[in-house]
Amino acid sequence: MPKANITFDDIGKTVSVPAGTRVIEVSERIGAGILYGCREGDCGTCMMQVLEGRDNLTEPSVLEEKVLRENMANGHDRLACQAQIIGDCRIRPA
């Protein structure tokens, strides 16, 4: 299975994960500082800033786009509960 590395900038840890893993699944287990609310892409609590490898996350869904818009996200922000890792990236809480 293809693997990818995700680095959590706030805690300085890098994890190798199977491609397709959602960021939330890793950040919760490694103890990164992203906070979560609904976990369903609705509340926007888990907004994160993508520092590197924006194209290495799956494209946002229509729902995620809407929530990002409502939360005035900028182009580097994504929801950790929605974004799936498909290549190396580096993130931090927004």
């Binding site: 590395n5 300085g12 840890k13 994890v15 199977p18 890793v26 287990r29 490694i30």
Partner: peptide, 14 residues
């Protein structure tokens, strides 16, 4: 284990 600087595998962090 997890806490060192090396790259961790998702399976390790249970």
């Amino acid at each position: 284990g997890p806490g060192s600087a090396r790259t961790l595998d998702l399976a390790e962090i249970g």
